[in-house]
């Protein structure tokens, strides 16, 4: 067991758990933040995507021991009131089906918009490699295209992301 201090959604956390515990399970089991999902455990599906020090990463691949002093943002912290531009578009365009993959989709897409606020189709295709078994890809693409066209400064209130 190792004591690790880091921040999640702006709140300081101290955790004493096995150093190999993936961030995914730290969030879900130890911190009760179950919005981040387990889909494969091997970096294939992206359901576990969170922002680590501002970058979209697959949390199943991030062991606790590497988190010292890190800043983590999960789907629960993407916006204060669920009003990130992508969250609004996702509802408006009826993107989710079962919804299980969607936290990962949203965190990946939000990560893309941070580095590239007006992504091209090719950038969207490249960045969104998450798996959705329900087949929401056409709508994810359409929603991201809409977001890409938004004038700057309409990106919703992003609290920590």
């Amino acid at each position: 067991m190792t004591v690790i201090r880091f921040r999640v959604n702006g709140t300081a956390r101290t955790l004493d758990a096995h150093p190999s515990t993936p961030l995914l399970w730290v969030l879900r089991d130890h911190l009760g933040l179950t919005g981040t999902k387990y889909g494969c455990g091997i970096a294939q599906c992206g359901a576990c995507t969170v922002h680590l020090n501002g970058q979209a990463v697959r949390s199943c691949q991030v062991p606790l021991e590497t988190l010292r002093g890190a800043d983590v943002v999960t789907i629960e912290g993407l916006s204060r009131d669920g009003d990130h531009v992508l969250q609004k578009l996702w509802a408006e365009m009826n993107v989710p089906q079962c919804g299980y993959c969607q936290a990962g989709m949203l965190m990946t897409a939000a990560g893309l918009l941070k580095t590239s606020p007006h992504p091209t189709d090719a950038e969207i295709d490249n960045a969104l490699s998450n798996i959705c078994r329900c087949g929401t890809y056409p709508r994810v693409r359409a929603a991201l295209r809409r977001a890409a066209q938004q004038p700057p400064g309409t990106g919703g209130k992003v609290s920590h992301g």
């Binding site: 009826n94 989710p96 919804g99 936290a103």
Partner: peptide, 29 residues
């Protein structure tokens, strides 16, 4: 009308409780 699913707001904020997200007092895994 074609309203969005009623559970969509909870999906996009990570609040929706799937089976895997169930928590009960004293629960083990």
């Amino acid at each position: 009308a074609s309203p969005a699913k009623l559970n969509t707001p909870d999906i996009v904020t990570g609040r929706l409780v799937f089976g895997i997200d169930v928590r009960q007092p004293g629960m083990v895994h």
